[in-house]
Simulated assay, not measured.
Amino acid sequence: MAGLGLVDLVDDTTYRVNVITAHMVAVPSSLDGMLHFSTEPVWAAAFLMKQLRDTNFKYPFQENKTPTQYGYKLIGEERFANQHTYSIMHSQGRMPSFSRFMEGKFGKFGTMPDRVKSLGYDLDSVMNGKADDIVVVDIGGGRGEMLLEVKAAYPHLKKENLVLQEFQPDRVNEDDLTIQHWDFKDDSPETVKGALVYSLTHIYHNLSDLEALRLMKKVADAMAPHSTMLIHEFAKNSTYGKMHATMITLYAGRIRSSREWKQLAALAGLEVTFEAYPVAGEGLVEMRKLPTANGAV
């Protein structure tokens, strides 16, 4: 478990718990998280060098052709050789555990409103929509935990102001949120036009650059001049090096730097208008529509 960062080495035979271990005890969902962070990544890592050697070091990976799928191919499990990692987990009955892990916000540092304000972001000025405005669209927002945090901080917001979009939406919070099905991986566009905020929490890090750009362009096409895209991701630094490697080997995704976010934004017709990359905890990147030379958007 030392290799996973759960304990600190004292000497050759002695370890002590650290803050990550303490967090696991405090947050029950972390046990489900450790199940996945000590199974899927270890499996993929075992076949990483084998795949690179066999493919003459072909990289970057495609999302259904990572070391995860390559390992299953080598052991003769052809049914998993071309499936997305999430589909494999679903087929093996591990998605309920993964969903509990995600719901518990393992690794989150405070509520969304408090966290972004601590980074110097003026969320109050963004949440200035009228009663009939769609204020926040949370794309891939699970069961809507983040939107409920927003609603608690801004109690004037109603169900109609808060839209949760998911591929397989769980309607447990449908009394408080507007819940929609959206599979952003297919060819369908973002149907909510002109919302104040389009929020994506730990979505882009699961996607390759091409898939991330494809999603970003869909959201950009739906944005109005007053709209913002808020991206909640960990920073690309030594703290999250293991997570970066995990995203690569499981999904062909990646954690991105300021330069990489700005490159994606420019290709999607957006510009980065706020960014914060804390050493530990979720960072924030805000994007807005890129003005044209005559001032239009």
Rank of each mutant, 00 (worst) to 15 (best):
G71D: 10
S29L: 11
W43T: 05
L52E: 05
D170F: 04
L148M: 14
T85F: 03
V285P: 09
T191R: 02
H156Q: 14
H36G: 10
H36P: 10
K65Y: 12
E275D: 07
T39W: 05
L207R: 03
Q180H: 09
Y70W: 15
G110D: 05
R214H: 03
L147Y: 04
G253I: 15
G269S: 11
V192G: 01
A293T: 09
S208Q: 07
V172S: 08
F167Q: 12
S29H: 10
V163R: 00
L162Y: 03
M49I: 07
F167M: 15
A44P: 01
E145G: 11
A296G: 13
A45M: 05
M102L: 11
A265R: 01
G283A: 08
D176F: 13
L177I: 05
I88N: 09
D132P: 00
A276S: 04
L74M: 13
E160Y: 06
P189C: 07
I20A: 15
K218W: 01
F101R: 01
Q51Y: 12
Q180D: 03
V7N: 11
Y154Q: 13
M95I: 15
M89V: 09
M34R: 08
R16N: 10
P67H: 09
T21Y: 14
F184W: 06
V137I: 09
N237S: 12
I139R: 00
L31D: 08
G120L: 06
L9M: 14
G141H: 02
T273W: 01
V279I: 13
D8E: 15
E260W: 08
D209Y: 00
M243D: 11
A195D: 08
L200F: 00
P291A: 12
F234E: 10
H84C: 06
S29W: 08
A222I: 05
V42K: 05
H90C: 06
K158M: 14
T178Q: 05
E145M: 11
D138Y: 04
L157Y: 04
Y277S: 08
M102Y: 01
D221T: 04
E282A: 06
R115F: 02
M127N: 02
A22R: 13
A276E: 02
P278Q: 07
L200D: 00
L267R: 07
K73D: 06
A235Y: 01
L157V: 13
S118P: 02
R254Q: 14
Y86L: 12
D138P: 07
V279Y: 06
E211P: 00
L164F: 12
K117G: 01
K236N: 04
W261A: 13
F184G: 03
R254I: 07
V27G: 02
G120D: 11
A26S: 15
V219N: 03
G269M: 06
T68C: 14
D32P: 07
M287V: 08
L284C: 10
P291S: 11
N56Q: 10
